[in-house]
């Protein structure tokens, strides 16, 4: 469904990604783990067209998409919950979800999908009319995920959904990811919380200073001594 073929990205003179290769197949949950500054966010921003690669190809559903403007990729079925959540603090929770459905016109289906979002995260229902800026960090993360789902994406990108959240909230977030996964979603999950990410994914890539240094089945990687030492704190 998604293939990154030798993709390099730089910020001015600094190369953030050096020839990375990765792929995500339909129905898979793939995780990309790595330390702070490894290039995980850069990878997702490149897939969503917020950054342009200096070399390589990004292929989605058979078409090269590098250079396609971000808003057009949303219509093609890619949605992202960005790092730092990126909720519209000045809009209500409901309006944020409406923005998630911006590309859609089917009012009834939008309303029922909004109900599904509220079912996934009942906290959002309680806060429906509140400005998103008044939500807690965990609630904002829930909103960012629910909002991404509102476009009915075929590929969902999640950038560090557990970052900075209390353990109980992290649990809620991963439970939701697991539910979306059970419904057959295709997800590329970026995390520093390697333990949880490996537990809730099919395959994994390990990114170190802009290069993919390991890849494989998540369960096997979780047993790998190098991964254990560097990322699982064992």
């Amino acid at each position: 469904m998604l293939t990154l073929d030798n993709v390099s990205v730089s910020y001015g003179a600094i190369e953030a990604l050096t020839g990375i290769n990765l792929h995500v197949e339909k129905g898979e949950v793939v995780t990309l783990i790595g330390a702070n500054g490894a290039g995980k966010t850069t990878t997702l921003r490149t897939i969503t067209g917020l950054l342009d690669p200096i070399a390589g190809r990004v292929v989605y559903e058979g078409n090269e998409i590098q250079g396609v403007p971000t808003h057009k990729l949303v219509s093609r079925g890619i949605a992202m919950s960005p790092e730092g959540r990126g909720v519209f603090a000045n809009l209500s929770v409901r309006e944020n979800l409406e923005m998630g459905a911006y590309i859609r016109k089917d009012k009834k289906a939008i309303a029922s999908d909004m109900e599904r979002g509220f079912e996934l995260f009942p906290r959002l229902k309680e806060r429906e009319a509140q400005k998103a800026g008044t939500l807690s960090g965990g609630e904002q993360q829930m909103l960012a995920m629910a909002r991404a789902l509102m476009s009915k994406p075929r590929l969902l990108l999640l950038d560090e959904p557990s970052l900075g959240l209390a353990p109980l909230v992290v649990h809620t977030i991963f439970e939701a990811i697991e539910r979306i996964r059970q419904e057959g979603a295709t997800i590329l999950l970026v995390e520093q919380n390697a333990n949880a990410a490996l537990h809730h994914s099919d395959r994994a890539y390990v990114l170190e200073t802009g290069r993919i240094v390991m890849e494989g089945d998540s369960k096997q990687l979780a047993q790998d001594p190098r991964v254990k030492e560097a990322y699982l704190g064992e």
Binding site: T70, V74, S75, M99, Y102, S151
Partner: peptide, 22 residues
């Protein structure tokens, strides 16, 4: 809808793009 998009863009341009807003 366009008015809400204006408010969204004014708050966070990249997030707005990720909603499919031109």
């Amino acid at each position: 809808k366009i008015g809400k998009a204006m408010r969204a863009v004014s708050f966070n341009l990249n997030s707005a793009k990720l909603m499919g807003i031109n």
